[in-house]
Every structure is written in C-alpha cells, then in structure tokens.
Amino acid sequence: MSEIEKGARVPVQLVLNGTAHTGFAESRMLLSDFLREVLGATDVHVGCEHGVCGCCTVLIDGVAARSCLTLAVQAEATTIETASSLASADGELNHLQAAFRKHHALQCGFCTPGILMSLTDLLRREPEPTRERVVDVVSGHLCRCTGYSGIIDAAMDAVNAGSPKT
C-alpha cells in the first residue's frame, strides 16, 4: 500500500505529449492544475472545475477524460496527450484542426482544445462515426461562441478526409 500524507509533496512522473516529465504535487492537486502550473501545458484550459464544461479534456492513456476530475497523483506513470500534440513539429495542422479552421468551428477558442481531444479519441476508436454519434460526443462540451454546427461540420469533414494523425 502506498500512502501520501495530507500536505506532503511527492514526485509525479508521466509522459506528456511524448516527453517524460516529473513534477511535484500534493495529493489534492488536480491533474488540470498539475499540467498547467507544474508542467506548463497551458493548452489545457480550465473552465468549471467540476466536470461540466469539458474544456480541460485530455487523453489519459489514450482515453478522453476531464483532467479536473482526476488527481495528479492518479496520473502517475500514465501517458497524457493534449491539443498541442496534434499539429506536426513544423506547425502543420492535422486533418481535424484544419477542418476546424475551415468550418469556423471556434471563435474565442477556449473550449477548442478539449473538444479536439474528445474527437481525437472518438476518431481513433470509431474512424467513421455517424453525425449523431459526433453530436453525442460533442455534447460533453460547452461552447458559447459557435452554436456547435461548425464543430459538428468540421468533425464530419475530418471523418471524410481520413483519420487524424495519431
């Protein structure tokens, strides 16, 4: 049994976007705060902090999840992917990101990183989802700019253009 005392700071090791990192966290630190404040991954956006808005969605071992509903210490020895892993090293957008640009699927962009990661998980699991299925997955996110139709159109466009870079 391992135990982390109240208030103690312990090392947390994980792989973030292909690079191994170690940072220190208290047991109560949320993964979202650990990624942003300790590892500097500011592409993880923090909205509601109780799992409703979906802005902080990242892939934990390949599976889309709210990083605000996960403790940093729970992410020990996991692989985390965030939105900045999607474009290639020279900045070229992947299919999904390019489709977002084409369909004006964002305005302020605050919700976008989370939605991109949810759709990345979906398209890896189900390369040809129906529009209805895409709507179901996007319903786990709040967007206050677009009215969602651009996001759904972009996702369906990415489906037709082939699966995103994985």
Partner: peptide, 12 residues
C-alpha cells in the same frame, strides 16, 4: 474550486 487537503491511499 480545489479540494481541501486529504491523505491519498493507493491500496494494492
């Protein structure tokens, strides 16, 4: 908001 401090236990 953030949780209050707690002891974290990972049983095997």
């Amino acid at each position: 908001m953030k949780p209050r401090p707690f002891t974290y236990v990972r049983p095997h």
